[in-house]
Design a binder for these strands. Structure first.
Lengths: 180, 180
DNA sequence: CGGCCATGGATGACATGTCAACCATCGATG
DNA sequence: CATCGATGGTTGACATGTCATCCATGGCCG
C-alpha cells in the first residue's frame, strides 16, 4: 500500500468542521489505489529488469550506459562535465563521483579544458566504446520486449500523452531539475 | 539518449549476411526514442518529486513510508520480517539494513518471535505512527496533483492496462521477484 | 591592478542498495 | 538422539546517491 489512510485517521473523533489541515485529504479510492500500486510496481520492476539485464550482459549499469551514450552522441566523443550534467539531469556531484568510478574502470578519461582553466572534458576511451557498442543491441532488444512489444500502437501514443502531461504537472515544482 | 545505435554500427563494413549476433538489432525509430526518453524522464522525475516532498514535509523517505504502511495495515502494527520483504518485494538484506536504521530513528522496534526462535517481529512505535499519520495526507495530495489530476478518466484506465501488460511481459524474467 | 562574487568542479561524510557470506534454529530422517 | 539441508535473519564489504563544503579560476567593477 502507499496511500491508504493509515488506520482510520487514528480513532479520529470526527471533527465535522474542516480542521486547520487542508480539510480531509482526498484519499484514494480502492480502484485508484490498485492503479497507483500497479503503476509503481511496474516502474520499479521495469527499472530493475533493465539494470539487471544491462549489468549481467555487459557489465554496465544504466548510469554508465547513459553517460556513454551522451559521449558517443557528442562530437569527438567528448563533452564538458556540466554539459553532461544538464543533459542527463544529474546533480553535478553525482556526476563527478560517477565519472571518477568510470575512469577507474577505464571507460572514460578526463582531459583539461584549455579555454577555461576551471573546467574539464570527459572523453570516451576505446574500451568505453567497445562496452557501449556491445551493450546497446541487447539493451534495445530488452526495451522492445518489455515495453514496446507488449503495447499496441494506440497505447503507445496514449502513453506518450500521459507521460507528457505528468511531466507538465511537475514543471515548476521545487527543483524539477537540479541546480548545478 | 538511451537506445541509439552508438555511432552507425562502428564503421560496420556492412556484412549483408546476418552476423552471428541476432541479426541487426531492432533500433528504435526517432518517434520511439522520443517516447522512450519521455517515459523514462517521467519515471525519474515523478519518483524524485515524491521523495523530495515526503522527505521535506515529513522527514521520511518513500522507503520508510512504505514500511510503515505495511505495518499499520498489519494486525497489532506488527509483522514478520520476511512477510514484509515479500509484500514490499524487497531483498531481505535490504530490508534488514533499512529496519536497523528505522529502529535507530525510533520509528519501529524489533521483537522476538516465540513460535519460531529464528524469526523476529517488527513493531511500529508510537512515534512511527505519528510520523506516518502526519505524512500520509500530504503524500496523497502530491500523488493526486502529479498523477491523478493531470490525467483523464480514460487515460487512467488505459494506463492501468498498460502497466498490467508491461508487468505481464516481465513475469518469468530472471528473478522478477527477489529470492529471499 | 585589487577585490569580489559567480562558475565549474572535486571531495568528504553520510544514507541507501546489492551481493555474498555467515549463523542459529527448524524439521525431517536415519 | 545426531545429522543435515532448508529457513529466517544479520552482517560486512562495497557501489551508488545526496548534501554541504571547499577551492581555483573567470569576469567584472571600482
Amino acid at each position: 500500500m502507499t496511500t491508504t489512510p493509515p488506520p482510520p485517521p487514528a480513532s479520529a473523533t470526527a471533527t465535522p468542521v474542516p480542521a486547520p489541515t487542508p480539510a480531509e485529504p482526498r484519499w484514494l479510492s480502492p480502484d485508484e489505489q490498485r492503479l497507483w500500486r500497479t503503476f509503481l510496481q511496474m516502474q520499479k520492476e521495469l527499472e530493475a529488469q533493465l539494470s539487471r539485464q544491462m549489468q549481467s550482459d555487459s557489465e554496465l549499469s544504466m548510469a554508465d550506459f547513459s553517460v556513454l551514450v551522451q559521449l558517443t552522441d557528442a562530437p569527438a566523443g567528448q563533452a564538458r562535465v556540466l554539459e553532461l550534467a544538464r543533459d542527463l539531469r544529474w546533480e553535478k556531484s553525482r556526476l563527478s563521483h560517477h565519472l571518477t568510478r568510470m575512469v577507474k574502470r577505464g571507460l572514460i578519461e578526463r582531459a583539461e579544458c584549455e579555454s577555461d582553466g576551471r573546467g574539464s572534458f570527459v572523453v570516451i576511451t576505446e574500451s568505453g566504446r567497445h562496452a557501449i557498442e556491445d551493450a546497446a543491441p541487447r539493451h534495445v532488444e530488452t526495451v522492445r520486449k518489455l515495453f514496446f512489444d507488449p503495447l499496441s500502437e494506440g497505447q503507445l501514443i496514449q502513453l506518450g500523452e500521459v507521460a507528457t502531461r505528468i511531466l507538465a504537472a511537475m514543471q515548476g515544482c521545487p527543483e524539477s531539475v537540479p541546480d548545478n
